[in-house]
Simulated scan of single mutants.
Amino acid sequence: MTKKVAFIGAGSMAEAMMAGFFHSQMIEPRHAIISNRSSDERLTFLQDKYGVRTTRYPQALLADADFVVLTMKPKDAVSGLAPLIPYLHEHHILVSVMAGVSTASIVDVIGKKIPVIRVMPNTSAAVGKSATGMAKGAYATPQHLEAVKELFQTIGTVAVVDDEEQLHAVTGLAGSGPAYIYYLVEAMEKAASEIGLNREDAKELILQTLIGSAQMLKNSPKAPETLRKEVTSPGGTTEAGLKELQKHQCQEAFIQCIKVATNRSKELGEALRNQMLNQT
């Protein structure tokens, strides 16, 4: 059966998922409809680029949707869900991509026993390489979970967690992860320029180094520490570089980076709960 998807929110994450779904042919652009808070320009851009439908009317948005994907900012959860409530029914599967926002909070806002699946993909969904974490809410069945899992497996790998609280960690590690890698590449590109490599050659070398390293990590049974040591000859160039990273405590900085992002996910969830309490 043809699946139809409504996107609430039109930012970079929504576009990445759309691009991945369409590329995999899991969803046809004509079976996707999208709305956002206020930017007509953004909706027009997505309509022209992908051939999706757009609307400002909640009833039209949800009329024939199987999946309702919530990609608005967490702080906009209550105001974004409010106009949808009269048109949401138990046959809809809500898929929340809002960092930190629990399925229980979404159900409380809606006030209906609607299945909610919480997911945390990343923007690599656009090229079918997302690392997605997933957990189901109280009213979602294993069949609902399987349907959403099947959808997201078309844009990468999926890890289903039993405890929804673990999605905070997934957010800090994988959801935000591409930004950490891009940050590293920025540094490598700046270093390449300073040591005399031209931009084009440097980019080619950096990308292939990343791809090759990732493939080694995926295919080899060896731990990352072992692979690192195999590259590091005593007194050689790699050892000299690694000593500089250790001097600046780069590994510790990355660990702290992931912990801080995880805690921020928890804070966003708590902020929504407080927002709901203030509105009741």
Results as ranks from 00 to 15, higher is better:
217 L>R: 11
145 L>D: 06
40 D>T: 00
131 A>P: 00
216 M>G: 13
1 M>C: 15
124 S>H: 03
41 E>S: 10
196 G>E: 14
268 L>T: 03
115 P>C: 01
216 M>D: 11
118 R>H: 05
57 Y>A: 11
133 G>N: 01
106 I>Q: 04
140 A>K: 00
110 I>N: 03
218 K>D: 10
208 Q>G: 12
44 T>R: 08
87 Y>E: 09
163 D>V: 00
245 L>N: 09
246 Q>S: 10
95 V>C: 15
224 P>D: 11
68 V>L: 05
101 V>E: 02
129 K>M: 02
273 R>H: 11
59 Q>G: 12
22 F>Q: 02
22 F>C: 03
198 N>M: 14
21 F>V: 01
58 P>D: 10
105 S>G: 09
203 K>D: 07
28 E>L: 06
135 A>V: 01
128 G>S: 11
279 Q>V: 07
66 D>G: 10
57 Y>V: 09
15 E>K: 08
54 T>G: 02
242 L>C: 07
234 P>N: 12
278 N>W: 06
92 H>T: 05
109 V>L: 07
140 A>L: 03
224 P>W: 11
213 S>P: 04
241 G>E: 13
266 K>H: 02
190 K>W: 13
226 T>I: 11
113 K>A: 14
20 G>I: 04
81 L>Y: 05
2 T>C: 09
42 R>W: 09
210 L>I: 12
17 M>S: 00
47 Q>R: 13
11 G>S: 12
88 L>Y: 15
60 A>E: 10
57 Y>N: 14
160 V>H: 05
52 V>L: 10
150 E>T: 10
208 Q>S: 13
191 A>P: 08
214 A>L: 11
24 S>F: 00
83 P>A: 04
220 S>F: 08
151 L>C: 03
233 S>W: 11
188 M>C: 04
193 S>C: 14
219 N>K: 03
30 R>Q: 08
140 A>N: 06
174 A>L: 08
71 T>F: 14
277 L>M: 09
63 A>W: 09
